[in-house]
Write a protein that binds this DNA or RNA. Structure first.
Lengths: 217, 217
DNA sequence: CCCGTGGTCTGACGGGTCGTCAGGTTCCGG
DNA sequence: CCGGAACCTGACGACCCGTCAGACCACGGG
């Protein structure tokens, strides 16, 4: 296939990977992730990455077009890991009282997942928001499995109802992502994580099943 | 009060503003906002801002400690503008069928508001997520009015119920913010804005009033 | 009308990063 | 032992950063 390289991948004009090459490439990626988690994206620099990987900046450019190329690579590996969350959504029994517990575990699973990838995900979110197509695509791909699982759960839970499963699933995922991202910000404000998880679970549960919890309108 | 300057403000060691000074300072801020909207944060540079404002980079540093200082300043002016949204939350009648319409207008108002400030807000979100206290504080302050209004609405709508108003309001706001931020990303995926607004409105309405829309559990 | 004072601007600089060559080094099969 | 492919890097011009000291206003008092 002559599909154009989306960018961010190795540049070396069509070279074969090779043993040693993949090693340094991997080391470069590790260092990128590590520095991203440490100092943050705003002052992540090629020079630093190269220093950390005990190699020269020039080498970096042999494998990635720029810093964002490396981050994009990390973003690609980001999709895996949401499997457990997807399972809980798909195989869980959303009906009755247990439904709320399913929702709670989904939310908790998402929080756990996010915790390991916050630094990478943050950049993806920023770049996607700024309109960068590569990152927008990466973001979509990462969250696709969860979104689709939610669409399925909604469709099964309330068939025929006048609800827009796709749109609902999408905004639910947005809620999960942003809540997880600003989890500590909320704690700083006095709202503990457990309370967040609970509130999120109620909303997810209500949105998926259509169940209410207050006085009937 | 000897409260330490949070940073981001003018540096000139305690100088008085002055006529001409405020002018260039304003021009600098305008250019920052403009470039932020245009080229995005990832390659926003002091040199560019200075060029745009027809002045020298050195002048920039006379008014702000660095690029983020200027953005932080823009973030401070960000809180105003959410007044209409707050009003709709506070004065709207959430009961009965009309409640859903109130929710819809709240969501739409938030989308409109966000549209004018996306570029600035994006940076605030990133920096806050990375733990920067100045930005975390700014973010809290910007969203505080809406969050509090929602807390009030929830408390009025379902007093005594076992719901955590604060946590619920906070995650609802997270949902609104992130949905607005990735509005175009969703459209790209085939979900039109009107559908997003509708889905968001249903969720907000359900969370505030406790009303359900599906078969009773 | 001139002049001084204090607010305002900037040229210039050392230090650092960026992205890219051309050419050196390492590895491996023959 | 040797040739070539894969891999690495020194070095370079361009640019940005952040910070001085000193030049440039502007305005009110003499």
């Amino acid at each position: 296939m002559a599909t154009a390289r989306a960018g961010g991948d190795a540049r070396a004009g069509g070279r074969v990977p090779g043993r040693r090459g993949s090693a340094t490439r991997g080391r470069l990626l590790e260092c990128t992730a590590s520095l991203l988690a440490g100092t943050g994206y705003r002052d992540l620099t090629v020079a630093d990455i190269a220093r950390c990987a005990a190699t020269s900046p020039a080498t970096f450019y042999q494998y990635f077009t720029d810093v964002e190329g490396a981050v994009l690579e990390l973003a690609a590996e980001l999709g895996d890991g949401l499997g457990p969350v997807v399972d809980r959504i798909t195989t869980g029994d959303w009906t009755g009282e247990g439904g709320l517990e399913v929702a709670r575990r989904v939310v908790q699973g998402f929080f756990d997942y996010y915790e390991e990838h916050r630094s990478v995900y943050r950049v993806v979110d920023l770049a996607a928001g700024e309109g960068d197509l590569r990152f927008r695509q990466a973001r979509t791909r990462v969250l696709a499995a969860v979104t689709e699982a939610l669409v399925g759960a909604i469709g099964r839970s309330r068939p025929g109802a006048g609800v827009d499963g796709e749109a609902t699933a999408y905004v639910l995922v947005s809620m999960l992502v942003n809540s997880a991202a600003h989890r500590y910000g909320m704690e700083f404000w006095g709202v503990r994580t457990s309370r967040q998880v609970d509130a999120l679970a109620r909303i997810v549960h209500a949105a998926v099943t259509g169940a209410g919890s207050g006085p009937p309108a």
